[in-house]
């Protein structure tokens, strides 16, 4: 059972990295056998989060890894930065909340897209978000 993919680390520093990051995430999803629908929702969520990093923290990092168990295929993306952080997490996860010019669908939308969404942040503490997509291993 040791055919798990190695985890991949990517820096997020420029707008171009947003495209690179989500493309890489899609590639990994394809390798792990996820379908088009899953690939697209993952790429969108990664794009969303990477863009947040650029917009609010200027730079950060991304780690894509295979966390599969015997029963479930799990692709995990960890995105973190050491930026200003989010003061009010609950508000940020509410629909329609946005401190910038976004649509306010970013974080809550992202959470809806993912099978697993975990966020850790506080004022001046940076932001760490872990997302996963799942598929049963048939």
């Amino acid at each position: 059972m040791n055919n798990k993919l190695k985890s991949i680390q990517l820096p997020i520093k420029t707008v171009d990295d947003i495209v690179l990051t989500r493309r890489k995430a899609r590639e990994v999803a394809i390798k792990m056998g996820f379908g088009l629908a899953d690939q697209t929702r993952l790429a969108s969520a990664v794009s969303e989060l990477a863009r947040n990093v650029i917009q609010y923290a200027q730079q950060g990092e991304c780690e894509i890894s295979d966390q599969s168990t015997p029963e479930i295929v799990i692709l995990q993306v960890l995105i973190f930065d050491y930026g200003p952080g989010i003061a009010d997490l609950e508000a940020a996860l509410r629909d329609g909340f946005s401190t910038s010019q976004g649509l306010g669908a970013g974080l809550p939308g992202c959470r809806r897209l993912m099978d697993e969404f975990y966020i850790e942040s506080g004022l001046q503490q940076g932001t760490k978000i872990r997302i996963q997509i799942h598929a049963s291993s048939l």
């Binding site: 088009l36 929702r41 969108s44 629909d95």
Partner: peptide, 16 residues
């Protein structure tokens, strides 16, 4: 618009 993109957009919620 690609079908899967449309799906993702509605999943994200709100009429985008």
């Amino acid at each position: 618009i690609q079908p899967y993109v449309a799906m993702t957009l509605v999943e994200m919620g709100r009429q985008l």
